[in-house]
Design a protein around this nucleic acid. Sequence first.
DNA 1: GTCATTGCAAATGCTTTGCAGTGCC
DNA 2: GGCACTGCAAAGCATTTGCAATGAC
Lengths: 138, 138
Amino acid sequence: MSDLLERLRDRGWRMTAQRRVVAEVLDGDHVHYTADEVHARATARLPEIARATVYNTLSELVALGEIIEVNTDGRAKRYDPNAHHTHQHLVCSGCGTMRDVHPSGDPLHALPEGERYGFAVSEATVIYRGLCPDCTTS
Amino acid sequence: MSDLLERLRDRGWRMTAQRRVVAEVLDGDHVHYTADEVHARATARLPEIARATVYNTLSELVALGEIIEVNTDGRAKRYDPNAHHTHQHLVCSGCGTMRDVHPSGDPLHALPEGERYGFAVSEATVIYRGLCPDCTTS
DNA sequence: GTCATTGCAAATGCTTTGCAGTGCC
DNA sequence: GGCACTGCAAAGCATTTGCAATGAC
């Protein structure tokens, strides 16, 4: 069983067939599916699952802090189950493929006090972009 | 006249009343309007300007590299005329207010070779989040 | 049995597109 | 005068919402 599913069960999350399937789809490394992709993969296991249920479940998992919402292109959001190790994303400018990356140092430290405008800065998200090996050669 | 307008003229950009107004709206520091906000401000000066024209013009300015498209929340994109000095953004988690910031060092350097997956990494965009002074007190 | 969760379909928000008319160069 | 640009309205995509039916606890 997936780690995610196990954690949710431990947290007393009400379990239904739909929720289980969504949680199962969101398992693994470098997984960054759109809601639509999650729905397609969920449908393969549970044909009658509704799109709205997928959206509801994803929002709830985000609210629980069990998955992360990633917004790279202003189009469909992507969902990343790797919520328990802080990381950043590397995105291919050609095909959109994403990888989880772990830059050295804390990005927050790069923002000097004089550049904080009195904000209580608590988080930094970084998106690296470039061509992946496949897109470089072709 | 705004710098932006001047540059566009120099580049031989076909000038129309609509385009001029959009370019004029996108002038200043820490300006990050949504397409809708640009449209509202443009309408104040040129009542008959169409929303689609604003969208067209914005896309073109982005393609020309004269403005930057910023996507902070997966909702409406924002447009930033400060395209000629690389910078990052600081966003208030409460009200969404944005500031341009200039972190120390090049964010690209924080990504070690072993974390690049063979990508030709060329760009890093950073979004810092936290509560602004107004949202902290209230 | 109760009440959260689901499915369906309609509504929403943002953006793009098709096409006929306008006006810049 | 040609052709790029505009306006309008309709279409498109991603997402959210309302509500009655279902099913987990």
